[in-house]
Simulated scan of single mutants.
Amino acid sequence: MATLGSPHRYALGVLYGDGIGPEIVSAAVLIADAALSAAGAAPLTWQELPLGLRAIEECGEATPKATLAALAETDGWLLGPHDSASYPEPFRSELNPSGTIRKHFDLYANVRPAKAFEGGDALAPGADLVIVRENTEGFYADRNTHLGTGEFMPTPDVAIAMGIITRTACERIAREAFELASRRRKRVTIVHKANVLKLTTGLFRDVCREIARDYPDVAVDDFHIDAMTVHLVRRAREFDVVVTENMFGDILSDLAGELAGSLGTAPSLNASRDRAMAQAAHGSAPDIAGQDVANPAAMILSTAMLLEWLGTRHQDEALVRAARIVEEGVGSTLERGIRTRDMGGAAGCRAFTEAVAASIGQL
């Protein structure tokens, strides 16, 4: 792995996933290489690793232990979407590959930008916000217990879900949000439901407020989750960084992505203090896999987030510059009216990727 203060040679894992995963991840690798060259950065070493249906066929596991061990030796990785609903049993009922990786590496921060690009047909023009979502607790069954899941049925007619909120998890996600806001427009919005879930989301709100004292230059406000959906629809462009718990963040980020133009352009980064995974916010779309119609923008932009995360962590200005070049390349391509089918255009996955590469060449 790269070390601070030395000529960096970063190694990134490549997990193609299922469905459209191989198409969009390959596009992201191509664009990352082009941007790194344009930025004068050292090229990356890409390490392809098995995951998903391919891994089941080759290794007998959806997320092989060898893959996890190899990822631990990289600086970060790209994860394509998985189609775990189509896996044969018993793999279908197991924790899916994304969840397994998040849990194994404690990737507690899910950072999801929603930016309206010119030419992207946004429902909320001018929107440029980031949802910072706590990624390890809440009501989601695969994230809030050490063994088993957070759901159980005492009788066939009664189902119970545990929602776990801890001070430690609240503190670290709040700090991620305030650190990010300090580099952006210096505003954090806390989203909760403390009028009803007084103890759990009340704790989340209060701990975020406590952390805010360490960032006096960052303005803070808060809204209940139901009110926040209305505010996003009506005035998305006024928000900067939104921090919230797991389930609320999942819902709000999908809403924000559509308001900004399309889930096809909605990137995502799962991160801890020392690991990060680029992963588009959308699914594997098996119905269009292999047809060259998938939108690679979200995966490309997710990879840009990973480059920026690495560059910030290692004080590597060339990587940060490469991340900006990727975003500018995608933005320029959309401004020229080159869009994939999900955004009302006619470009295929390869054509859109080639157009972004050409835009980077012109930049």
Results as ranks from 00 to 15, higher is better:
residue 2 A to K: 07
residue 3 T to N: 14
residue 9 R to D: 05
residue 13 G to Y: 00
residue 19 G to M: 04
residue 27 A to L: 12
residue 30 L to H: 12
residue 33 D to Y: 10
residue 36 L to M: 15
residue 38 A to Y: 05
residue 43 P to D: 12
residue 62 A to R: 01
residue 65 K to G: 14
residue 81 P to Q: 09
residue 83 D to K: 09
residue 95 L to I: 08
residue 109 A to F: 02
residue 113 P to M: 09
residue 123 L to V: 06
residue 123 L to Y: 12
residue 126 G to W: 10
residue 127 A to F: 01
residue 132 V to F: 14
residue 144 N to H: 04
residue 146 H to D: 13
residue 146 H to C: 02
residue 149 T to H: 08
residue 151 E to W: 00
residue 165 I to Q: 02
residue 166 T to M: 04
residue 174 A to L: 04
residue 176 E to K: 08
residue 182 S to H: 10
residue 185 R to F: 08
residue 186 K to T: 05
residue 196 V to T: 15
residue 198 K to C: 11
residue 205 R to E: 13
residue 206 D to I: 15
residue 207 V to N: 09
residue 210 E to S: 14
residue 210 E to A: 09
residue 210 E to L: 10
residue 215 Y to A: 03
residue 215 Y to K: 13
residue 218 V to M: 13
residue 222 D to F: 10
residue 226 D to S: 15
residue 235 R to A: 12
residue 240 D to V: 12
residue 241 V to E: 10
residue 246 N to Y: 11
residue 259 L to Y: 13
residue 265 T to Y: 03
residue 271 A to W: 06
residue 280 A to M: 09
residue 291 Q to W: 05
residue 305 M to Y: 07
residue 313 R to E: 08
residue 315 Q to C: 09
residue 317 E to Y: 00
residue 322 A to R: 03
residue 322 A to G: 03
residue 330 V to K: 00
residue 331 G to E: 01
residue 332 S to A: 12
residue 332 S to K: 02
residue 333 T to E: 02
residue 343 M to V: 05
residue 346 A to L: 06
residue 348 G to L: 01
residue 350 R to A: 07
residue 351 A to D: 08
residue 358 A to P: 04
residue 360 I to S: 03
